[in-house]
Computed example of a mutant assay.
Amino acid sequence: MLEYVIKRLAYVVATLAVMSVLIFLITQIMPGNIAHLILGDFASPADIATLEAQLGLNDPWYVQYLRWASAMLHGDMGTSLSMNQPVADVIWGAVGRSALLAGISIVLVAIIGIWLGVYAGVRRGSKSDNAISMVTYVNIAVPEFFWAIVVIMLFAGYLRILPATGYASLDDGLWNWLRHLILPVFTLVTGLIAHVSRLTRSSVIDVMNTQYIRAARARGLSERRVVRDHALRNALLPAITVLAIDVGVLMGGVVVAETIFSFPGLGRTLIYAIQHMDLPLLQASMMVVTFVYAMANLSADLLYAFLNPKIRYGRGDA
């Protein structure tokens, strides 16, 4: 198991290294001049040239990259051009709020999505299975922003029981804190729950038709024990993988939800950095998103290997 963990960690490090180069290069070819952005529209060409020399902007790109990557590794994310404050201060506050939003969402997706999938899978062809399938098909087809518009119109516009935008801390009261999370979380989880439940249902149906399940039933075990002790362990393996993939999908959904609901998280910070050509803030935001996605996939790989020893012993780890 240790060898497997080391191999996966090496993949993560390599992925982050490659992505850091791509992120740096992409931000370097974006239109605009950092020195001009810092000094303003009325700066003279001489002042801009002087600042470019001070910032090392005339150095080859690989020298600039190594300087930036070294600073990032030491926790120095630079200074925001538009806010004139350390990027780390801006990022970590936004990351905490986005982590709260994404964390609640992924837990709900895992619990509700897997439960619905198992429930529908063991009752294949029943009215409840058909009802769940119909709802999930609709939710998979409908984009997130549609549900965002619907819930804003219904709960914030018509019923006026939930706020349409903003964020409240726990210091403002538990209910006020929850009220600002309900609509963004609902928007994020609706499609992902449908995705996970459909995959789980298919996996459960496949497992329930295997030989060892028939053997367990032949031994006189109750259907509950057959499902709990024999079917779930193998049926949940694909669900674990898709949950890791959904973390990446969730990161994209967070950007949409935070923009629509004016939620001050990492997604909205990323959009702000693009709109204001704030390259240090943009680079740091993109690296944090990449790191989160890499960690989610690493966690899924390790959990998958824990549940299925063939992954870490033998050909499964190739």
Rank of each mutant, 00 (worst) to 15 (best):
A296D: 03
T165F: 14
L66N: 04
R124H: 14
R198T: 04
R201C: 00
M287V: 05
I260S: 08
S20M: 01
N209G: 13
M295S: 11
I106W: 08
G252H: 10
F291C: 12
V5R: 09
L116Y: 03
H230Y: 14
M1E: 07
T259N: 13
F263S: 05
A284R: 01
F306N: 05
L302I: 12
M287E: 04
Q64R: 15
L232T: 04
M72K: 11
S128Q: 12
V204H: 02
G93N: 14
L55Q: 05
V12Q: 01
M287Y: 08
Y212I: 02
I23D: 01
T290C: 15
D89C: 07
A216F: 02
P31I: 09
I260K: 11
G314N: 10
L183T: 02
M153Q: 15
D59K: 14
A141Y: 04
A168F: 12
L25S: 06
A14F: 13
A257Y: 04
R228F: 15
H180G: 03
L192Q: 12
A300E: 04
E52H: 11
L101T: 01
F186C: 08
L199D: 00
G265V: 01
I132L: 09
A284C: 07
P31R: 11
A239R: 02
L221V: 09
A168K: 15
I182T: 10
I205K: 06
G121T: 00
L178I: 15
L298I: 11
N234W: 02
W115T: 14
P238S: 11
R225F: 10
G314E: 08
L188K: 00
V226A: 03
G220T: 06
K7A: 09
M72P: 01
H36A: 15
L250N: 00
G103M: 05
S299P: 01
I205Y: 04
M30L: 15
M1D: 06
Q275V: 13
V13T: 06
